[in-house]
Amino acid sequence: MNQANTNHVVIELKNVFKRFPVGDSEITVLKGLSFTVQRGEFVAIVGPSGSGKSTLLNMITGIDRPSDGEIFVTGHAVHDMSESRLATWRGEHVGIVFQFFQLLPALSLLHNVMLPMDFAQKYAPRERTQQAMRLLEMVGLADQAHKLPGMVSGGQQQRAAIARAMANDPPLVVADEPSGNLDSHTTGQIFDLFHMLVEKGKTMVMVTHDLELARQVPRVIEIRDGRITRDKNNGRSTL
């Protein structure tokens, strides 16, 4: 289980396949993917629509399981874990930022950020509010803390979602099309936050269809038809 840790490898995929039933037949969305991500890396996964990007992200976060192959994330065999174990593991090890923000509409921004802390029980109850406020400050939303998601803009919601992703200080943050619903200015703000997280030592994996955005990321993995066609790291391709 510690195979990934000794090499500072946060994510390791080994020959991962994913098939989906369609009527009487099957389609194979991921065709034998293998790659690793080191601690502190900022990786963008790009590809056309239907290429399997989001499916790949679901594999990494344990939201979905591979049909074949192995996946190790933060030293855990994600492909083998039960649903309940996965939920607990996610709370402690992975922060997820969704395209559509996915904040609970009935909770304020502050409470949305505190929610993962309540699940993971990592912080004492009295510390959670302070910790959440610090995170909201980090993303520039301390003065909006008590507002409901419906009362703030899309960009503010996404920043709150990033703060939520950081609630339990996970080593890995994944983002699925984080700027899909945002304008270019707001996208820039979000991207700056991601860079800040990486500078703080987090490992960042981002799925995007925005090639302009992907160019600003140190490492880009391109997927087409379920296969990695390019894995470019600081201008050097690893394929």
């Binding site: 976060t61 939201i63 939920a87 709370g91 996915q102």
Partner: peptide, 14 residues
């Protein structure tokens, strides 16, 4: 979908 998000951020079934 809210249940899904809660599980995504660490909530157990219980």
């Amino acid at each position: 979908s809210q249940i899904g998000i809660m599980k995504a951020v660490g909530a157990s079934t219980g």
